[in-house]
Computed example of a mutant assay.
Amino acid sequence: MSQEIGVIGSPDFTTGFRLAGVRKFANVPADEKDERLDEAVSEMLEDEEIGIVVMHDDDLDHLSRDVRQDVETSVEPVLVTLGGGTGSGGLRDQIKRAIGIDLMDED
């Protein structure tokens, strides 16, 4: 089971995670997202040590169709997005996809 957390995003986004002890990160400045974000995400998805990848919700718009599909279908590592308009439903869906069951199911 993969134990590491990976973070992808602007240096401002990754700094807090790095200060908290996250060792795997990819800094992608805002002006280079269209060129470098796909590569950074693909590398994190292929890293067998990483179980969770964290990135900002707005950065999903900068991914190519193929990489975005890889992200949406990846079970391990699971991609968790923060910020933007994800809301509790988005996080709930991410958790459900990661573990395979809905912990908040009221039925």
Results as ranks from 00 to 15, higher is better:
His62Ile: 00
Ala40Leu: 05
Asp59Trp: 08
Gly21Asn: 06
Val7Thr: 10
Arg68Gly: 03
Gly84Thr: 15
Leu45His: 00
Arg36Glu: 13
Arg23Ala: 15
Asp61Leu: 01
Asp47Ile: 07
Glu72Ala: 00
Arg18Pro: 04
Glu43Thr: 10
Ile52Phe: 02
Ala26Tyr: 10
Leu60Glu: 07
Ser2Ala: 12
Val53Leu: 08
Phe25Ala: 15
Met1Ser: 06
Gly16Thr: 07
Leu37Gln: 04
Val54Cys: 07
Asp58Gly: 12
Val78Ile: 03
Arg65Val: 06
Met55Gly: 11
Leu103Ser: 06
Ala26Gly: 13
Ala40Trp: 02
Ala40Asn: 03
Lys24Leu: 13
Gln94Ser: 13
Glu48Phe: 00
Val54Glu: 09
Pro77Ile: 01
Met1Leu: 10
Val67Thr: 10
Glu43Asp: 14
Arg68Leu: 14
Gly6Pro: 12
Gly84Tyr: 09
Glu46Arg: 10
Leu82Arg: 10
Ser74Ala: 06
Glu48Gly: 03
Gly21Arg: 00
Asp58Lys: 12
Pro11Cys: 08
Lys33Ser: 04
Ala20Asn: 05
Leu91Ser: 02
Asp105Ile: 01
Ile8Met: 14
Asp105Cys: 01
Asp12Ala: 01
Asp59Phe: 11
Asp12Arg: 03
Asn27Phe: 09
Arg65His: 09
Ser2Val: 04
Leu82Asn: 01
Asp34Glu: 07
Glu4Trp: 00
Ser88Glu: 13
Asp66Tyr: 05
Arg68Cys: 03
Asp59Arg: 06
Ile101Cys: 10
Arg18Trp: 00
Arg18Tyr: 03
Ser64Asp: 08
Asp93Tyr: 09
Glu72Cys: 04
Ile52Leu: 05
His62Gln: 07
Val41Asp: 06
Leu82Gly: 02
Asp12Met: 06
Leu60Cys: 11
Phe13Asp: 13
Val78Asn: 05
Leu79Ala: 11
Ile50Ser: 07
His62Gly: 01
Asp47Gln: 09
Ser2Cys: 05
Ser42Arg: 14
Gly89Cys: 04
Lys33Cys: 12
Met104Thr: 14
Gln94Gly: 02
Asp38Trp: 01
Glu48Arg: 12
Val80Asn: 08
Ser74Lys: 03
Pro29Asp: 04
Asp66Val: 05
Ala40Ser: 10
Met44Leu: 07
Gln94Ile: 15
Asp59Pro: 03
Ile99Trp: 08
Asp12Phe: 04
Asp105Ala: 08
Val71Cys: 10
Thr81Cys: 14
Met1Cys: 05
Pro11Gln: 06
Arg68Pro: 02
Leu63Gln: 05
